[in-house]
C-alpha cells in the first residue's frame, strides 16, 4: 500500500499524448506546481486539461500552453492569460467554458460514481445548447455529465504514505473533488509523513482515491493579486 514515488517525473509516468488531465487549483492557489513542471519537461502534447483556470502567461497551466501542449481547455474562467486568448482567437486551442459550480460538481459526480448531475446553472444560456433539460418541481435543470479523466493531479498541504491528504486554507478549492475523479490520481504534497501521523478525523481526501504521492520541492506559491492594507 505504499504509494510514494520519489519525484514529479516519476509520478507522471504513463501520461501520454492526447490524454485528459484534471489539474487542481483555483487561479494560482493550490496548484500542483511540481507536476506541471514535469509535464513541461516531458513535452507530452495534445492534452485536454480540465482546470478551473488556465494559469497566467508564465506560471501554472500557462507554462504548458506556451509549449503548445494543450489541445483543449475545460475551464470556468480564463481571463488572466494573454497567450491563452491569442491561441483561442487564432483557432490553435479549443476551449469548453463550464460554469464553476458545474465544473466542480462534474468532478464530484465522477468521484461519487454518478454519471450525471442536474443543475440550474446555464439554463436559458448558450451553455444549455444541445443538452437535456429536465423539470423538477417547476424548475428547469440541465443534465451535465460526470467528467472522465485519465489522470487527476492535485496539490495538498500534507499527505501520508497511504495517500491520505490534508489541504490548507483556500488552496483546498478543486483539489479534493479532482482527487476523487481521476482514473489515476497523483498527489503532490508540501510535507509527506509516515502513515499514522495524520489524524484520521482530519483527513480531507481518503487515500483510496490517491494512487501516487510525492513530496514536492521549491514551492513558489505565486500570488496572483497581492492585496494588502496599511498598518494602522
Amino acid at each position: 500500500m505504499n504509494k510514494v514515488v520519489s519525484n514529479a517525473d516519476e509520478a507522471i509516468r504513463g501520461i501520454e499524448d492526447g490524454m485528459t488531465l484534471m489539474l487542481g487549483g483555483f487561479g494560482l492557489c493550490g496548484l500542483p506546481e511540481n507536476s506541471i513542471a514535469a509535464l513541461v519537461r516531458k513535452g507530452v502534447k495534445n492534452l485536454t486539461c480540465i482546470s478551473n483556470n488556465a494559469g497566467v502567461d508564465d506560471f501554472g497551466i500557462g507554462l504548458m500552453l506556451k509549449q503548445r501542449q494543450v489541445k483543449k481547455m475545460v475551464s470556468s474562467y480564463v481571463g488572466e492569460n494573454a497567450e491563452f486568448e491569442r491561441q483561442l482567437l487564432s483557432g490553435e486551442l479549443e476551449v469548453e467554458l463550464v460554469p464553476q459550480g458545474t465544473l466542480a460538481t462534474r468532478c464530484m459526480a465522477a468521484g461519487y460514481g454518478m454519471p450525471a448531475i442536474f443543475t440550474p446553472a446555464g439554463i436559458g444560456t448558450e451553455v444549455a445548447v444541445g443538452k437535456e433539460i429536465r423539470n423538477f418541481n417547476g424548475k428547469d435543470y440541465l443534465m451535465e455529465l460526470a467528467f472522465e479523466a485519465d489522470f487527476a493531479i492535485v496539490k495538498a498541504w500534507k499527505g501520508d504514505t497511504m495517500g491520505n491528504l490534508v489541504y490548507r486554507s483556500t488552496a483546498r478549492n478543486f483539489n479534493p473533488v479532482m482527487a476523487m475523479a481521476g482514473k489515476t490520481t497523483i498527489a503532490e504534497v508540501e510535507e509527506l509523513v509516515p502513515a499514522g501521523e495524520l489524524d484520521p478525523d482530519q483527513i480531507h481526501t481518503p487515500g483510496i482515491y490517491v494512487h501516487r504521492i510525492f513530496q514536492g520541492v521549491n514551492y513558489e506559491k505565486r500570488i496572483e493579486q497581492r492585496t494588502v492594507r496599511k498598518q494602522s
Binding site: F26, G27, L28, C29, G30, E80, W157, R168, S169, T170, A171, K221, R222, I223, E224, Q225, R226, T227, V228, R229, K230, Q231
Partner: peptide, 19 residues
Amino acid sequence: PFPYEGEEDPDTINAGKQT
C-alpha cells in the same frame, strides 16, 4: 479584510484571487 503588508498568505485568497 486584506492582510497587513508582509502577512499575505498565498493559500488564502478570495474569488477574485486577491489575498
